[in-house]
Design a protein around this nucleic acid. Structure first.
Lengths: 120, 120
DNA sequence: CCCAGTACCTTGCATGAAAAGGTAGTAGGT
DNA sequence: ACCTACTACCTTTTCATGCAAGGTACTGGG
């Protein structure tokens, strides 16, 4: 293609918009029960959130290090054992906080969108 | 305080959630007309989006470099001249794209929130 | 003629997303 | 017994970017 060849192209902008919400979404997914990395990856992708292994594993380690997640090793029927993650109490608390922030953020941005549309 | 002394504390998580939406919000603000840096800073702060000069100036340069913004120098009554920014056609197009992405993202996350609440 | 106020910008650091590469367990074929 | 394919976990390296701090320059008032 000939357009969108600048550094700030549509796709990278779309991707970037989703970036910092990844931690929140990961906690939301895990909050539904017990999941291992591939499950989480699939759930996020099913929700149009692009993630790759190289992003997810360090993130899970970070969240575990902050005591928001814990895991249990479980045998697999086909392949190596898996780490099944779930939320800690601390993680549930954080999720509540993040939800509140998300709602505020949604209000702010929707209000900006309305203002913008009035002027166009 | 005694709690929240881990690396992943509530405030930094809240701040981080807002981070990657800054470019979008900046475009939304400028889309309303012509603004210079302090205007933009105030508008964003009024909408609960924390920004500082050291973030905004490089971002404006980046957006201008990607031809999403353009500016005009205007005299000020009290102080040095100001750069008044406005959207280019390309910028308006990008804003439409970002709005679509934002709406999709909102749907995805709200659906995840509902799923989470069913399980808790 | 200095100083306070405003406006623009740069430098340096820390964080974190992503690509690529690495280790190891299991299963199935020969 | 060995090789290959598949799956799962993790690390290393690179790059982008948010932010604190510091720097330059124009204006007007005392």
């Amino acid at each position: 293609m000939d357009m969108e060849n600048k550094s700030f192209d549509t796709e990278s902008a779309r991707a970037q918009m989703r970036k910092s919400l990844l931690e929140y979404c990961t906690l939301l997914v895990i909050g539904q029960g017990e999941f291992y990395a591939s499950d989480i990856l699939n759930e996020l992708k099913a929700n149009n959130l692009i993630v790759v292994e190289g992003t997810l594993y360090p993130m899970l380690s970070r969240l575990k290090g902050s005591e928001l997640l814990e895991y249990t090793w479980k045998e697999s029927k086909a392949g190596p054992p898996r780490k099944y993650y779930r939320l800690t109490e601390r993680g549930k608390h954080m999720l509540d906080q993040l939800k509140a922030t998300w709602l505020e953020l949604t209000l702010s941005i929707n209000s900006l969108i309305k203002k913008y549309e009035k002027n166009n």
